[in-house]
Simulated scan of single mutants.
Amino acid sequence: MAEVARLESVPPDGDFFHELGADSLLMAHFCAKVRKQPGMPPVSMKDVYQHPTIRSLSGALTASTTLTAPTTGPSRDEPRASPEPSFDVPVHEAPATGTAGLGRPHVVLCGLFQLLSFLGYALLIAAIVTRGYEWIAAGHDPVDDYLRSLAFGAVVLALLCTLPIAVKWLLIGRWKPERIRVWSFGYMRFWLVKTLLRANPLVLTVGTPLYSLYLRALGAHVGRGVTVLSRTVPVCTDLLSIGDHT
C-alpha cells in the first residue's frame, strides 16, 4: 500500500480514503498489485470499501481464507499437505502523524470552506438585489422604473454569466493533467469552480453557438460548426478539444 500511495509508511488503522488521500483508481491499482503477489488472496474493491484500513482488510481476508479452508484432515493413506502460506497483508507500523495523507482536519476545513462559499455567494446576491431594488424604486415614473428594471436585470445576468469564468481563470488559470487529493486545497478550488460553472445561466444555451463561445471562454478548444448537446458542463475545460463540424 505504501508503494502504491507513494508514502514512506502506512498506519495500520489509517483510513485509505479519509486519511491517506486515496481514491478508487489508486485502490484499484492496489488490488491489482495484491492479486499479483504469490500466496496472497484476491482483493476486490468491495473488500476495500467494506474494510478501509490495513488492519481491518487483513483481518477480513484472513477470516475469509479460514472459512474457505477444508476442515477435515487428510486420511492415513494420503500424504500430509504442507502448511498453507499466510495470507496476512503486511502491515507497516507507523504513527498516523507521520503519513502524508489527508485526515479529518482537512475534511473539516474543506467543509467549512464550502459552507462559507455558500454563505458568501448568498450574501453577495442579497446585497446586489437590495441595491438594485433601491435604485429601481428611485425612479420618477412607471416608464423610468421599467427601464431601470431592464437595465438592472441585464447587469445581473451579465454578472452571473461572467463571474464563473473570471473565478476559473483567477483560481485555476489553465487546467493541466494532474491528480487532486480529496479534501486538499486543490480540491477546494476544483469544487468551487465546478459549482459556479454548473450554476451559470449560460448552461441553458446548450445546443446553441453561444454555448460553444462559453466553452471557448473557459479555455476549451472548440472547432468551427460545433454543436454541443450534452447538459453535463465540463470542469477541466482546457483539456477539452472538439474538432470542426462535430
Rank of each mutant, 00 (worst) to 15 (best):
L109W: 06
S241N: 07
C161F: 02
P209L: 08
D47Y: 12
K168W: 00
V143C: 12
L210N: 02
K194M: 13
R224H: 06
H18M: 13
G120Y: 02
K46T: 05
A2S: 14
I125D: 08
V222W: 01
F185K: 06
R131Q: 10
W183L: 14
D23H: 06
P11G: 11
S184A: 15
P177M: 09
S64L: 07
A122M: 11
W169E: 04
H221V: 04
C236A: 14
L229T: 08
P90I: 13
L124H: 12
R181I: 09
H140Y: 07
P41E: 07
P90W: 04
C161Y: 00
A127Q: 03
L240E: 04
K168L: 06
K46S: 04
K33Y: 02
F118V: 08
W135R: 12
T97L: 15
W169R: 14
A100V: 14
Y187F: 15
H18I: 12
G111E: 13
P83M: 06
S82Q: 13
R148W: 05
A166K: 09
C110G: 07
P74C: 07
R80V: 14
E134P: 00
W135D: 11
V193H: 13
A100I: 10
L147C: 15
L150M: 12
P234D: 05
D15S: 11
L210Q: 11
A126V: 09
L115W: 12
A127I: 02
T72I: 13
Y187K: 11
H221C: 04
S58E: 07
R181W: 07
E134N: 06
L171H: 01
Y133M: 08
D244G: 08
G111I: 03
C31F: 07
T62Y: 01
V203P: 01
G139C: 11
A22K: 05
V10S: 03
Y121N: 05
D23C: 06
G219F: 01
K33C: 05
L192K: 15
R35G: 10
T97A: 14
T232D: 06
L160C: 10
V48H: 02
P209D: 04
M1D: 01
R231M: 10
M188I: 12
A126W: 12
F30I: 15
P142Y: 13
I136N: 02
A22D: 03
T162E: 15
L109I: 06
T195C: 11
M27E: 03
P85K: 12
P164E: 02
A60I: 08
G39S: 10
T99P: 09
S241L: 08
E8S: 14
Q114C: 09
D141R: 13
L67D: 05
